[in-house]
């Protein structure tokens, strides 16, 4: 019995060491970034949302892109707190700054870089990710190769900036060097029976890949400035669990 306990202890220790070697330093509780994802954070290595890493988001059409943008905005609002600055890079941007306010971001703290060509975007992301004064860099682009994504990974390791790559309508979803891959799709919102109108945004969040974590699928709602978990069997009488 004692031996078994010892064994599991050793395995835990080794796992932590492995994470350390892979660049995930153990974070003290008070340094733990509050990302507000609640039970979902168990999926991440060390149960912490990986900052100083590049996250990849894929979306297939305009409505899914809006949902993805909303989910990213929710994450960024937690990362930015009150004084961060964020860079938003892309070509043909559709983001409407006043819409960010609903996700707790003051739109004037977002700096937009609107470029003409896709390959300029890569240069701008890399420069942005190298600048440690930024909280996050969001990039909207279609294609990125493995080599190009590795460069971004190297940049964030030094600067500790969090990068979000949003690949909307990508022709091919090739494998890239990112810590995670997410796919967000909108789901039907919920309102009390008989109340007219449209409810708070709800998404199906699919974590397709997470390095050293456990992929999974969750259903979240953004209400009152934070993420709220829905039980996976979302029916008309949804059980809502408050987190964050």
């Amino acid at each position: 019995m004692e031996e078994a306990a010892n064994k599991s202890e050793i395995i835990e220790k080794l796992k932590k060491e492995m994470l350390l070697m892979q660049g995930f330093s153990a974070v003290l509780d008070h340094e733990r970034p509050d990302i507000g994802l609640g039970p979902m954070e168990k999926a991440f290595p060390n149960h912490i949302f990986p900052t100083a890493a590049v996250h990849e988001f894929v979306s297939a059409h305009a409505a899914a892109a809006a949902a993805t943008t909303g989910f990213m905005a929710g994450l960024i609002s937690h990362l930015m707190k009150t004084e961060g600055t964020c860079l938003w890079v892309g070509t043909g941007r559709q983001l409407f700054p006043p819409g960010l306010k609903a996700f707790g971001i003051s739109p004037d703290r977002m700096i937009f870089i609107d470029l003409q060509r896709e390959r300029d975007v890569l240069w701008a992301i890399e420069e942005g990710l190298k600048c440690s004064a930024l909280t996050a860099v969001v990039a909207e682009l279609k294609e990125i190769s493995l080599t190009e994504s590795r460069r971004l990974q190297l940049a964030v390791e030094r600067s500790r900036v969090t990068g979000f790559l949003h690949r909307c309508n990508a022709k091919k979803t090739n494998h890239i060097a990112s810590v995670s891959r997410w796919e967000i799709s909108p789901i039907v919102s919920h309102l009390e029976a008989g109340v007219p109108g449209v409810g708070d945004p709800r998404w199906n969040v699919e974590l397709q890949k997470i390095r050293n974590g456990k992929p999974g699928s969750w259903q979240l709602e953004w209400s009152a400035g934070r993420f709220t978990h829905l039980t996976t069997t979302a029916t008309e009488s949804t059980f809502i669990q408050q987190t964050g």
Binding site: I111, F112, L115, C131, S132, L134
Partner: peptide, 28 residues
């Protein structure tokens, strides 16, 4: 102030490469 300078420096590099009209910030 340090951070401010770093961001201003970054934006200058971007403006130098793509022109100042690539950078936008919005107010209500």
């Amino acid at each position: 102030n340090q951070e401010h300078l770093a961001i201003a420096g970054l934006l200058d590099r971007i403006a130098g490469r793509f022109g100042a009209n690539a950078i936008h910030r919005y107010l209500p």
